[in-house]
Nucleic acid binder design. Sequence first.
RNA 1: GCCCGGGUGGCGGAAUGGCAGACGCGGCAGACUCAAAAUCUGCUAUCAGAGAUGGUGUGGGGGUUCGAGUCCCUUCCCGGGCACCA
Length: 833
Amino acid sequence: MGGLALNERYIASEIEAKWQKVWAEQNAFGSEINRQKPEYYVLEMFPYPSGKLHMGHVRNYSIGDVFARFKKMQGYNVLHPMGWDAFGMPAENAAIKNGIHPAKWTAENIANMRRQQQEMGLSYDWEREVTTCSPDYYKWTEWLFLLFYDMGLAYKKKAAVNWCTECNTVLANEQVEDGRCWRCDSPVVKKELEQWFLKITQYADRLLADLGELKGWPERVKVMQENWIGRSVGAEFSFDAPEIGEKIAVYTTRHDTIFGVTYVVLAPEHPFVAKLTAGKPEETAVSAFVERVRNLSEINRTSTETEKEGIFTGAYAVHPITGEKVPIWVANYVLLEYGTGAVMGVPAHDQRDWEFAKKYNLPIRQVIAPQGGHETDFAKWTAAYDGPGVMVNSGKFDGLNGETGKEKVADWLEKHKVGKRRVTYRLRDWLISRQRYWGAPIPIIYCDKCGTVPVPKKELPVLLPENVRFDGGAVSPLAEVEEFINCTCPKCGGKARRETDTMDTFICSSWYYYRFTDAKNANEPFDTAKVNYWAPVDHYIGGIEHAILHLLYSRFFTKVLKDAGMLNVSEPFKNLVTQGMVIKDGAKMSKSKGNVVSPEEIIAKYGADTARLFILFAAPPERDLEWSDQGVEGASRFLARLWRIVGHYAPTVKAAEKGYDPGSLTKAERELRRALHATIRKVTDDVGVRFNFNTAISAIMELVNAMYLFREQVAQPNPGLIRETVSGLLKLLAPFAPHITEELWNETIAEGSVHQQTWPSFDAEAIQVEECEVVLQINGKVRDKIVVPVGLNAKELEAKAFEQERVKALTAGKQVVKVICVPQKLVNIVVKE
RNA sequence: GCCCGGGUGGCGGAAUGGCAGACGCGGCAGACUCAAAAUCUGCUAUCAGAGAUGGUGUGGGGGUUCGAGUCCCUUCCCGGGCACCA
């Protein structure tokens, strides 16, 4: 041994801090545009600065770091930045609870988490760090809001919106889960408020269509987005309501059942309800019903369990084709926000309508003859039939197949100008106003004379005032700051008021990955040439919880920015990895369950390399990962094993000349060389193509095992081969365990940094084996194995198989029906008794 | 209800239609040691058998194939998403 550190035990803490310092001093992971190299942008979803890292973060960053380091070694110009999604409720809650200003609380948390990330040995370009709550960032968030405003994509409207009673703010649809707030889980109620929206619905078709381009996204994320956008193709047409001189528009996807309409239903909030009942005996009862439904919580209102309830308005509508008079009802199962807020009731062919009609004794009329084994006797039906079939009782449309019928009915509606084809989306516009302090101010001014006036771009940013009161009240803190509210109108110079709502923090995170490409630009959000060099993000890694939220918003932003000419990509993230959760004892780690393992403690005890290696080895990235203390021990043991074997060979490597004659190797040496090159091939494929790190690591473990066996067998190995093996091994492991490999590299090869090396390539000739084992099967069961020269063809192999004693014995006296020979693999002999 | 995942040893997990269980954990044994730890080596799906060996085995049932964890049909269980969206 060389009398170096390698004589001693592997102690992670001694080497990790040393190399982290060296890398920082050398700015080893800095990035700049270099058109001589292909670029590669690796990004992990930036965190909310909650205060300290949890295991989910460790997993997220470990995965990203492997990609970044691997691509860099492969010769790519890698961008791998990190930043902070720093606006949001927790900072404000801390202010209310502990009296710390959100800015201070956030800054302290960032400092701590950044330190923890550095202790993980992550290869970030810290020069590009962005913090969304910093004025030089949110200036551009405000600027982008104005861009949307100028493009007609930001508007204010009064609407019944989701209000979280706990957070005291409104929420977007995407942020309500099962009628509860996505962040604090408290019930959401509807509130009628005037709020700012972004017109994401205008991009619904493109957001849906372009999902097809995202070959590198997990199927389930695409499906979730598809469901969320919820495209449906149908028709809109009107029933005359002669009593009030209006037309009631309805939307349906089943216009082939139009002759089955026996009533029309309005949503309780529909504007015609009051008009239709005015002065009628039903008026009092209807308005009481409407009032009762409107006061229901979101959970009760939208549950499928809730019984269908309704009430007759006393008014009638005229069927556009038959001229028939049908009653107009109001019911709780019709939603104002979707379609036209009114539906046609076809109880025979819609289960909701069926239940409703049964309950209120409304007529049920069959207009579709079922196909495919369904009960054809209408009198025996116990539920609506919504399957395919042929139109009946439908006048001149009788006999048409439903699908054809839809087209004919739509043609008829369009020809007679009572309706038209229409595509509807479930997606709603994005509500972005938040009645909170800790967010980017919406740069809008209200003037009594000029109305709504955008803040001129040269006056940005609208800064958050520092001195505000945090009392947790229902009013946003900004609404109580007179100096903030009072301003002059940019148009007329008169007295005016500022908007006091701030923006949803998902706005800040919808464009941060573009800011990284030009993080310090003081004149615009980012330079177009720079963004076009790096974008899109080649590999994005984050949690599945953003399958819709952040990932949908970011896709929307990207399309708008493209339309604005600011960049030339239409999708932000080329490949997406949605990592699984880190669980322990069968449940997600959480304080309430008491099963939290602290990354800080693990790193202190075993080192960052062990933590990273374990978490990458224990499961493939997409799957949930069960935490195992013993598994961590195993990872640590492997690194110590690596340390010892490389330590053993360190003097050999140092004394070795570069290069050797492969022809001079002994059999055992050839075998080691084969193992090395096979490992290079496998790791390259697992990391670069399959994104499976656990199998890559197991392959490296096998190589180390092979080296131990080799050491037992060969006392005086070829030094050149040993050098090649140690060098290759360290390079392969470098992306996973960057510190120990750097240390060992420095103690053996000692040329620069292992992380600056070129990724090894395998030698096809080295992987060639002279002999291989072939399985001999009789009727598909393995009966023997033989070792044969690789070159044997099927015929030779078959002959060889029949020479075997066992084969002779087992086929004796039997008729050989067929023989399947797969060279280098197997021989299957099919025999008959 | 609809749509995605997923069910493989004691555990985490491997297997381009070709030896199921790589690698790791755990367990057992041997070497080293006065002894232990650490380390190194070997064994470790299950049943029968002293062993050679044979049978069984990837949630269940059926199918395609010389050959199925892998493909097809069907069914059960677990996880997730959407859901009064007309």
